[in-house]
């Protein structure tokens, strides 16, 4: 049944640090690589080397310009994948039961052999986390690398999602957000982690750490105001040129 569990034993998810992300897209590539070769149908591309390339991705990095009231604009890179919501609207709309949320760890998955490719779950997701694969005609989404995190054939250091393992900036963290003592929960508490689109009522498990405020340099040089001002008017050749052009 595609009803949601009342509670999950764990709430596995990601914490994404918008202060640290450098926008390199390494997580996008490693996600595509891992998930093309492993769990479920491969992530296909259409017209990959042609004029209008397009493909299935489970993780995409947006970039936003934020202009404060005063000062310079900031550029913020913004990775986005499935947030494994507690009230996942994508699960309850599924007519076949292909979409489900696991009781043991809260991961939202698609059973691809039950998926009819109607696309309604992607309609129900406010985050654009689900994409229909144009080759396999089934819905694809982030599995939180369910085939890595419990995989005892991998070295322990690799038993985390591919995107987290790859991130060269340490901007992605993986853990149990249901446990208030876990590293990720403490990080969220410390840095004021937030939900995306909280008004949609999806209660996402993944959290985003907002960029830290930019520091400002205080005026520490007490003698600077007494220095002779730098000459504002150009002299020499430039001065002559300035005057000559003025007269024209």
């Amino acid at each position: 049944m595609t009803t949601l569990p009342d509670n999950t034993e764990k709430k596995l998810g990601l914490v994404i640090d918008l202060d640290t992300c450098v926008g390199c897209h390494a997580c996008v590539i490693s996600c595509k690589g891992w998930n093309t070769e492993n769990y479920g149908a491969p992530l296909s591309d259409q017209d990959a080397y042609g004029g209008n390339p397009s493909g299935t991705f489970l993780n995409r990095v947006h970039s936003y310009e934020v202009q404060p009231e005063e000062g310079h604009a900031q550029l913020i890179h913004f990775p986005k994948s499935c947030l494994h919501c507690e009230d996942a609207p994508c699960v309850t709309v599924c007519p076949t039961g292909a979409s489900y949320k696991r009781v043991e760890d809260g991961i939202v998955l698609v059973n691809e052999s039950d998926c009819i490719g109607c696309g309604l779950c992607a309609w129900a997701c406010p985050y654009g986390a689900r994409e229909m694969d144009m080759e396999e005609k089934v819905m694809k989404k982030c599995t939180l690398c369910v085939d890595r995190i419990y995989n005892e054939n991998l070295p322990e250091v690799d038993r985390i999602p591919s995107c987290v393992r790859t991130c060269p900036a340490g901007a992605r963290h993986f853990g149990d957000l249901g446990d208030p003592d876990s590293d990720v929960s403490q990080l969220v508490a410390e840095r004021g982690g937030v939900d995306l689109m909280p008004e949609q009522g999806t209660r996402p498990v993944n959290k985003y750490l907002p960029p830290r405020p930019k520091d400002t340099m205080p005026e520490i040089d007490v003698l600077a105001p007494f220095l002779e001002p730098v000459v504002q008017e150009p002299g020499g050749f430039l001065g002559w040129l300035d005057k000559a052009l003025e007269k024209l």
Binding site: R60, Q67, A122, P126, G128
Partner: peptide
């Protein structure tokens, strides 16, 4: 009440503008 500020949660810093999409091409979404 859903807008780019609630979507990105960056509205507290200033006015948010989409600067660059994830890919140069189009996609399913």
């Amino acid at each position: 009440g859903t807008d780019i500020a609630s979507a990105t949660q960056l509205g507290g810093i200033g006015k948010v503008r989409a600067f660059e999409p994830p890919h140069t091409g189009t996609n399913y979404l």
